[in-house]
Design a protein around this nucleic acid. Structure first.
Lengths: 152, 152
DNA sequence: AGAAAATGACACCTTGGTTGTCATGAATGA
DNA sequence: TCATTCATGACAACCAAGGTGTCATTTTCT
């Protein structure tokens, strides 16, 4: 094993290696948990964005999550077909309407999030505020690093 | 937004929300970076496991990364076809051979990792050892939490 | 007003990853 | 020891996440 760099870099690599398994297992966990509401991970992501940021347009969501515009579009249309979101006229843009959560959509995403939070809470006690803050900072930095990949 | 829980849980949710985009963008970054060596993310993962743990069997790798046995098998066969890994007889198990990096395989994965490390190093300076340690701890906890999902 | 960019619709494709089945080789317990 | 059960590998079918390409319409910019 060549000693090319500093210790920190090694540790960062470890972080990266953790993200993969975590993402995959979490995804399975979610889709194994969510079928009651029938939300795919895509729909879940859209609903969650709307829940946090309020109404947004499709391209906005795509940029926000580094997903292709078309993918978000499809997902959004799907969510709309299920009555989870609705298109409201965008004063600033005739063609590109704002996407807003319906009551059903809000109920669905809230239920999912609450269930996830319940699970998260079980382990939260063991971790300190500072640790989580640090984690967020590290992940944000990593995210910003790979952020220049532009899609669409 | 219902105030159902503690602050910590909220922050953990944030962590989770960061893992998704990070995984996706990193994956794209890797596959956009790695084509020189021609490694898919699957092959990359296999080679990296072998690089860190030494020779292992396919099922071992699957369990380690929470991937289905068959997926790892396919990926491994692919890697073998490209001469990146080789099957060495397993004294403890006639049917299940150990998978070992070839010289070419080691060279390939080393090159990839080194390039990644170079990128990582750019931002490493901004983060402290303690922060990364905390991040690793948090992610590990999360990983353990969703760990009971068994595949295959 | 005209050119360039943004949006939506639609179709196609790639690929990461799983599931199922079957045959064979390994472990286990009566 | 033998029968049963479990682990492994091969092969195929399948699914879903997500991207790409194209075209028509709408917006924006100069």
């Amino acid at each position: 094993m060549s000693e090319t760099g500093d210790e920190l870099t090694d540790r960062l690599t470890e972080v990266f290696d953790l993200v993969g398994p975590l993402y995959r297992r979490a995804q399975r966990k979610v889709e194994q948990d969510a079928p009651i509401e029938g939300l795919s991970v895509g729909v879940r992501a859209v609903l969650n964005m709307l829940r946090e940021h309020g109404p947004m347009t499709v391209p906005q969501m795509g940029r926000d999550q580094a997903l292709s515009r078309q993918f978000v579009q499809r997902t959004t249309n799907d969510a709309a077909a299920r009555g989870l979101v609705e298109f409201v006229p965008n004063p600033a843009h005739k063609k590109s309407s704002l996407i807003r959560l319906t009551e059903a959509g809000r109920a669905a995403i809230t239920a999912v999030i609450d269930r996830e939070r319940a699970v998260l809470r079980q382990i939260g006690g063991d971790l300190t505020e500072a640790e989580i803050t640090a984690c967020l900072r590290v992940l944000s930095r990593l995210l910003r690093l790979v952020d220049d990949v532009d899609v669409d």
